[in-house]
Amino acid sequence: MKIALFATCIVDAMYPRVAQATVQILERLGHEVVFPAGQACCGQMHLNSGYFREALPVVENHVKTFEAGFDGGEYDVAVAPSGSCVASVKHQHAMVARWAVEKGERRADATLEARAAAVGDRTFELAQLLTDVLGVTDAAAQLGSYLPGTIAYHPSCHGMRLLRLGDRQLNLLRSVEGLDVVDLPEADQCCGFGGTFAVKNADVSSAMLADKVANICGTGAAACAGGDASCLMHIGGGLSREQRTTAGDAPVRTLHLAEVLASTREHPLTFDGGLALAGSPAGGAR
Protein backbone atom coordinates (compact mmCIF):
# COMPACT_ATOMS: atom_id res chain seq x y z
CA MET A 1 0.00 0.00 0.00
CA LYS A 2 1.16 3.53 -0.68
CA ILE A 3 0.79 5.65 2.41
CA ALA A 4 1.10 9.41 2.72
CA LEU A 5 2.69 10.56 5.94
CA PHE A 6 1.19 13.68 7.49
CA ALA A 7 3.97 14.39 9.95
CA THR A 8 2.07 17.23 11.70
CA CYS A 9 3.82 20.54 12.35
CA ILE A 10 4.90 19.76 15.89
CA VAL A 11 6.49 16.44 14.97
CA ASP A 12 8.07 17.89 11.84
CA ALA A 13 9.71 20.75 13.71
CA MET A 14 10.17 19.40 17.24
CA TYR A 15 10.06 15.58 17.21
CA PRO A 16 11.34 14.43 13.80
CA ARG A 17 12.20 11.08 15.28
CA VAL A 18 8.51 10.32 15.76
CA ALA A 19 7.93 10.74 12.03
CA GLN A 20 11.09 8.80 11.27
CA ALA A 21 9.84 5.98 13.47
CA THR A 22 6.48 6.04 11.69
CA VAL A 23 8.23 5.72 8.34
CA GLN A 24 10.30 2.86 9.65
CA ILE A 25 7.31 0.92 10.97
CA LEU A 26 5.37 1.27 7.74
CA GLU A 27 8.33 0.37 5.54
CA ARG A 28 9.05 -2.61 7.73
CA LEU A 29 5.58 -3.85 6.90
CA GLY A 30 6.43 -3.51 3.22
CA HIS A 31 4.50 -0.35 2.48
CA GLU A 32 5.70 2.63 0.51
CA VAL A 33 5.71 5.92 2.39
CA VAL A 34 5.27 9.23 0.62
CA PHE A 35 5.77 12.63 2.26
CA PRO A 36 3.70 15.23 0.39
CA ALA A 37 6.04 18.20 0.43
CA GLY A 38 3.35 20.88 0.53
CA GLN A 39 2.04 19.78 3.92
CA ALA A 40 2.39 21.95 7.00
CA CYS A 41 -0.26 21.81 9.73
CA CYS A 42 -3.86 20.76 10.39
CA GLY A 43 -4.85 24.16 11.78
CA GLN A 44 -6.13 22.74 15.05
CA MET A 45 -4.46 25.40 17.17
CA HIS A 46 -6.16 28.17 15.21
CA LEU A 47 -9.50 26.41 15.09
CA ASN A 48 -9.61 25.57 18.76
CA SER A 49 -8.64 29.14 19.63
CA GLY A 50 -11.50 30.54 17.58
CA TYR A 51 -9.30 32.02 14.86
CA PHE A 52 -11.31 30.47 12.05
CA ARG A 53 -10.30 33.07 9.50
CA GLU A 54 -6.63 32.42 10.19
CA ALA A 55 -7.26 28.65 10.16
CA LEU A 56 -8.80 28.73 6.72
CA PRO A 57 -5.59 29.02 4.64
CA VAL A 58 -3.97 26.35 6.82
CA VAL A 59 -6.88 23.98 6.20
CA GLU A 60 -6.95 24.86 2.49
CA ASN A 61 -3.28 24.04 2.21
CA HIS A 62 -3.77 20.69 3.90
CA VAL A 63 -6.73 19.69 1.76
CA LYS A 64 -5.09 20.87 -1.47
CA THR A 65 -1.84 19.08 -0.69
CA PHE A 66 -3.32 15.73 0.24
CA GLU A 67 -6.16 15.54 -2.29
CA ALA A 68 -3.67 16.04 -5.09
CA GLY A 69 -1.90 12.84 -4.10
CA PHE A 70 -5.13 10.92 -3.58
CA ASP A 71 -6.46 12.07 -6.94
CA GLY A 72 -3.19 11.36 -8.71
CA GLY A 73 -2.98 7.84 -7.26
CA GLU A 74 0.26 8.63 -5.44
CA TYR A 75 -1.08 7.06 -2.25
CA ASP A 76 -4.14 5.30 -0.95
CA VAL A 77 -4.40 6.56 2.61
CA ALA A 78 -2.78 9.18 4.81
CA VAL A 79 -1.50 8.61 8.33
CA ALA A 80 -0.47 10.95 11.13
CA PRO A 81 1.18 10.04 14.42
CA SER A 82 -1.30 12.23 16.31
CA GLY A 83 -4.87 11.61 17.40
CA SER A 84 -5.77 15.25 17.81
CA CYS A 85 -4.44 16.32 14.40
CA VAL A 86 -6.33 13.47 12.72
CA ALA A 87 -9.46 14.41 14.66
CA SER A 88 -9.06 17.96 13.38
CA VAL A 89 -8.67 16.76 9.79
CA LYS A 90 -11.67 14.47 10.11
CA HIS A 91 -14.04 16.72 12.05
CA GLN A 92 -12.96 20.35 11.93
CA HIS A 93 -11.81 20.92 8.36
CA ALA A 94 -15.25 20.52 6.85
CA MET A 95 -16.64 22.64 9.68
CA VAL A 96 -14.39 25.62 8.96
CA ALA A 97 -15.07 25.31 5.23
CA ARG A 98 -18.79 25.56 6.00
CA TRP A 99 -18.17 28.47 8.34
CA ALA A 100 -16.39 30.40 5.61
CA VAL A 101 -19.30 29.93 3.20
CA GLU A 102 -21.89 30.89 5.83
CA LYS A 103 -19.95 34.01 6.75
CA GLY A 104 -19.37 34.99 3.14
CA GLU A 105 -15.61 35.04 3.64
CA ARG A 106 -13.54 36.34 0.77
CA ARG A 107 -11.61 33.07 0.71
CA ALA A 108 -14.74 30.94 0.97
CA ASP A 109 -14.78 28.04 -1.46
CA ALA A 110 -18.02 26.14 -1.83
CA THR A 111 -16.14 22.99 -2.86
CA LEU A 112 -13.85 22.92 0.18
CA GLU A 113 -16.26 21.23 2.58
CA ALA A 114 -16.73 18.13 0.45
CA ARG A 115 -13.05 18.00 -0.47
CA ALA A 116 -12.03 18.30 3.17
CA ALA A 117 -14.43 15.51 4.12
CA ALA A 118 -12.96 13.30 1.37
CA VAL A 119 -9.43 13.84 2.66
CA GLY A 120 -10.62 13.26 6.23
CA ASP A 121 -12.23 9.96 5.28
CA ARG A 122 -8.88 8.64 4.05
CA THR A 123 -6.77 9.95 6.91
CA PHE A 124 -5.92 7.68 9.84
CA GLU A 125 -4.23 7.95 13.17
CA LEU A 126 -1.25 5.59 13.38
CA ALA A 127 -2.74 2.94 15.69
CA GLN A 128 -5.99 3.12 13.73
CA LEU A 129 -4.14 2.48 10.47
CA LEU A 130 -2.01 -0.30 11.92
CA THR A 131 -4.94 -2.07 13.57
CA ASP A 132 -7.89 -1.47 11.25
CA VAL A 133 -6.23 -1.23 7.85
CA LEU A 134 -2.90 -3.02 8.05
CA GLY A 135 -3.99 -5.80 10.41
CA VAL A 136 -1.25 -5.41 12.99
CA THR A 137 -2.30 -7.11 16.22
CA ASP A 138 1.04 -8.27 17.56
CA ALA A 139 3.79 -5.69 17.39
CA ALA A 140 6.52 -8.12 18.46
CA ALA A 141 5.63 -10.69 15.83
CA GLN A 142 4.70 -8.39 12.97
CA LEU A 143 7.00 -5.41 13.54
CA GLY A 144 9.77 -6.97 15.60
CA SER A 145 9.03 -4.40 18.30
CA TYR A 146 11.22 -4.82 21.33
CA LEU A 147 11.80 -2.50 24.25
CA PRO A 148 12.67 -3.80 27.70
CA GLY A 149 11.31 -1.76 30.58
CA THR A 150 8.21 -0.38 32.22
CA ILE A 151 5.97 2.35 30.84
CA ALA A 152 2.71 4.00 31.71
CA TYR A 153 0.30 4.91 28.92
CA HIS A 154 -1.69 8.15 28.59
CA PRO A 155 -4.51 7.73 26.05
CA SER A 156 -4.96 11.44 25.11
CA CYS A 157 -8.42 12.96 24.95
CA HIS A 158 -8.93 13.47 21.24
CA GLY A 159 -7.80 9.99 20.28
CA MET A 160 -9.99 8.54 23.00
CA ARG A 161 -13.11 10.67 22.64
CA LEU A 162 -13.11 12.08 19.10
CA LEU A 163 -11.56 9.16 17.21
CA ARG A 164 -12.81 6.45 19.60
CA LEU A 165 -9.47 4.66 19.38
CA GLY A 166 -10.41 2.51 22.34
CA ASP A 167 -7.54 0.17 23.26
CA ARG A 168 -5.84 0.22 19.88
CA GLN A 169 -2.74 2.07 21.06
CA LEU A 170 -2.64 0.23 24.36
CA ASN A 171 -2.94 -3.19 22.70
CA LEU A 172 -0.07 -2.39 20.35
CA LEU A 173 2.09 -1.32 23.29
CA ARG A 174 1.18 -4.45 25.23
CA SER A 175 2.33 -6.61 22.35
CA VAL A 176 5.85 -5.13 22.35
CA GLU A 177 8.40 -7.70 23.50
CA GLY A 178 9.97 -6.93 26.87
CA LEU A 179 7.67 -4.01 27.58
CA ASP A 180 5.63 -3.91 30.77
CA VAL A 181 2.72 -1.48 30.48
CA VAL A 182 1.53 -0.51 33.95
CA ASP A 183 -1.89 0.91 34.76
CA LEU A 184 -1.92 4.68 34.97
CA PRO A 185 -4.41 5.93 37.59
CA GLU A 186 -6.90 8.45 36.16
CA ALA A 187 -5.49 7.69 32.71
CA ASP A 188 -8.57 9.13 31.01
CA GLN A 189 -8.06 12.54 32.62
CA CYS A 190 -6.80 15.34 30.41
CA CYS A 191 -3.16 16.38 30.92
CA GLY A 192 -4.22 20.02 30.74
CA PHE A 193 -2.61 20.97 27.44
CA GLY A 194 -5.55 21.98 25.27
CA GLY A 195 -3.54 24.12 22.83
CA THR A 196 -3.72 27.79 23.74
CA PHE A 197 -5.62 26.78 26.90
CA ALA A 198 -2.16 26.06 28.37
CA VAL A 199 -1.27 29.75 28.13
CA LYS A 200 -4.70 31.38 28.35
CA ASN A 201 -5.58 29.44 31.48
CA ALA A 202 -2.06 28.59 32.57
CA ASP A 203 -2.96 28.11 36.24
CA VAL A 204 -5.71 25.55 35.67
CA SER A 205 -3.65 23.85 32.99
CA SER A 206 -0.69 23.59 35.36
CA ALA A 207 -2.89 22.16 38.12
CA MET A 208 -4.14 19.47 35.74
CA LEU A 209 -0.60 18.73 34.62
CA ALA A 210 0.66 18.41 38.18
CA ASP A 211 -1.87 15.65 38.85
CA LYS A 212 -0.97 13.86 35.62
CA VAL A 213 2.75 14.00 36.44
CA ALA A 214 2.11 12.73 39.98
CA ASN A 215 0.03 9.85 38.66
CA ILE A 216 2.70 8.88 36.13
CA CYS A 217 5.49 8.98 38.67
CA GLY A 218 3.40 7.05 41.16
CA THR A 219 3.40 4.06 38.83
CA GLY A 220 7.16 3.69 38.98
CA ALA A 221 7.35 3.57 35.19
CA ALA A 222 10.44 4.96 33.48
CA ALA A 223 8.37 6.67 30.81
CA CYS A 224 4.91 7.68 29.77
CA ALA A 225 3.91 6.64 26.28
CA GLY A 226 1.18 8.14 24.17
CA GLY A 227 0.00 8.76 20.65
CA ASP A 228 -0.05 12.54 20.57
CA ALA A 229 3.21 14.48 20.46
CA SER A 230 1.58 17.67 21.71
CA CYS A 231 0.24 16.04 24.88
CA LEU A 232 3.61 14.33 25.33
CA MET A 233 5.42 17.65 24.98
CA HIS A 234 3.17 19.03 27.70
CA ILE A 235 3.59 16.07 30.05
CA GLY A 236 7.30 15.86 29.28
CA GLY A 237 7.64 19.56 29.98
CA GLY A 238 6.14 19.02 33.43
CA LEU A 239 8.29 15.97 34.18
CA SER A 240 11.35 17.95 33.14
CA ARG A 241 10.43 21.00 35.21
CA GLU A 242 9.85 18.88 38.29
CA GLN A 243 13.06 16.99 37.50
CA ARG A 244 11.32 13.69 37.94
CA THR A 245 13.71 10.76 37.84
CA THR A 246 13.53 7.01 38.09
CA ALA A 247 15.10 5.01 40.90
CA GLY A 248 18.11 4.69 38.62
CA ASP A 249 18.37 8.49 38.44
CA ALA A 250 17.40 8.65 34.78
CA PRO A 251 14.86 11.30 33.88
CA VAL A 252 11.29 10.03 33.55
CA ARG A 253 10.58 10.42 29.83
CA THR A 254 7.73 10.59 27.42
CA LEU A 255 7.79 8.32 24.39
CA HIS A 256 5.59 8.33 21.34
CA LEU A 257 3.86 5.09 20.38
CA ALA A 258 5.73 5.15 17.05
CA GLU A 259 9.11 5.30 18.76
CA VAL A 260 8.23 2.35 20.96
CA LEU A 261 6.94 0.27 18.05
CA ALA A 262 10.00 1.10 15.92
CA SER A 263 12.41 -0.11 18.59
CA THR A 264 13.87 -3.58 17.81
CA ARG A 265 16.47 -5.93 19.26
CA GLU A 266 18.92 -4.86 16.56
CA HIS A 267 18.20 -1.16 16.92
CA PRO A 268 16.66 -0.58 20.31
CA LEU A 269 15.52 2.90 21.27
CA THR A 270 18.27 4.56 23.26
CA PHE A 271 18.95 7.82 25.04
CA ASP A 272 22.37 8.97 26.17
CA GLY A 273 23.78 5.72 24.85
CA GLY A 274 21.64 3.63 27.20
CA LEU A 275 18.40 1.78 26.64
CA ALA A 276 15.46 4.17 26.67
CA LEU A 277 13.81 2.63 29.71
CA ALA A 278 17.02 1.70 31.50
CA GLY A 279 15.89 3.19 34.77
CA SER A 280 12.64 1.30 34.91
CA PRO A 281 12.63 -2.05 36.62
CA ALA A 282 14.67 -0.96 39.64
CA GLY A 283 11.86 0.77 41.47
CA GLY A 284 9.50 3.68 41.66
CA ALA A 285 9.97 6.98 39.98
CA ARG A 286 10.30 9.92 42.25
Binding site: R17, H256, S263, T264, L269
Partner: peptide, 26 residues
Protein backbone atom coordinates in the same frame (compact mmCIF):
# COMPACT_ATOMS: atom_id res chain seq x y z
CA UNK B 1 12.53 1.45 -1.28
CA UNK B 2 12.58 -2.09 -2.68
CA UNK B 3 9.78 -3.34 -0.52
CA UNK B 4 11.86 -4.23 2.50
CA UNK B 5 12.74 -0.92 3.98
CA UNK B 6 13.64 -2.23 7.38
CA UNK B 7 17.37 -1.91 6.90
CA UNK B 8 17.26 1.41 5.16
CA UNK B 9 17.41 4.81 6.75
CA UNK B 10 18.25 4.46 10.39
CA UNK B 11 15.12 6.31 11.27
CA UNK B 12 15.03 5.78 14.98
CA UNK B 13 16.69 3.77 17.63
CA UNK B 14 20.14 4.39 18.89
CA UNK B 15 21.48 5.13 15.50
CA UNK B 16 20.35 8.63 14.75
CA UNK B 17 20.02 10.85 17.64
CA UNK B 18 22.52 13.65 17.42
CA UNK B 19 22.73 14.38 21.06
CA UNK B 20 20.58 13.08 23.80
CA UNK B 21 17.97 15.77 23.58
CA UNK B 22 17.21 15.45 19.89
CA UNK B 23 13.50 15.82 19.72
CA UNK B 24 13.17 14.20 23.06
CA UNK B 25 9.87 14.76 24.72
CA UNK B 26 11.55 15.53 27.95
Amino acid sequence: ADGDGSTRGPATGGATSDGATEGEAQ
